[in-house]
Design a protein around this nucleic acid. Sequence first.
DNA 1: TGGATGATCGCA
DNA 2: GCGATCATCCAG
Length: 192
Amino acid sequence: MTGRGIIDIDFYGRETVRVAKELLGKILVRETAGGVISGRILETEAYTGPGDPASHAVRGPTPRSAIMFGPPGRAYVYFCYGMHHLLNVVTEREGTAGAVLIRSLEPREGLQRMRKNRGRKTEAGLLDGPGKITRALEIDLELNGRDLTQGEGLYLTGGTILPGEIVSTGPRVGIRNGLDKPWRFRLITDPK
DNA sequence: TGGATGATCGCA
DNA sequence: GCGATCATCCAG
């Protein structure tokens, strides 16, 4: 949003973009009766509200996107392409839309369970996609709205960016509009 | 490279 | 209601 001010900065979605970067390196934990499954966040994307043509909140709240306008720290889970659940973290203050899509994890706990859930024999490619993550961690619509700061069933906890890792920034993927915004963030090994 | 597969939402 | 759309994944 460019206003009439004397500076030309897009402040809209500022918190969402900040949180998207801060989530890198943090741990996502899933607790089920069958045990704990967890991973370290390696890739995120920021989605804001009106003004972001790629966001579900672009036209204001709808039954599906209303949770993006609610209090932050909650899970926004939705069903995509008829077969995948995708997990987001709600970001902005209540009344303002924003969410961060969790795109990729580094496997941590529950490797055997993840492989079984994904039908894979090896660790390769286990959690490197938003649909893969929800399948491996048994996340579906039942967890929509869950408070990710409360440590109940699905939550976020401390983690860090490791020495030698840097944050790579670029356009979001899998969308048609909003490609001008560099709101995809990845932890990669510093090539230097 | 395209098919699977179904919820969502704007518009009629 | 109707149909275009979709923040994906995987086989071939």
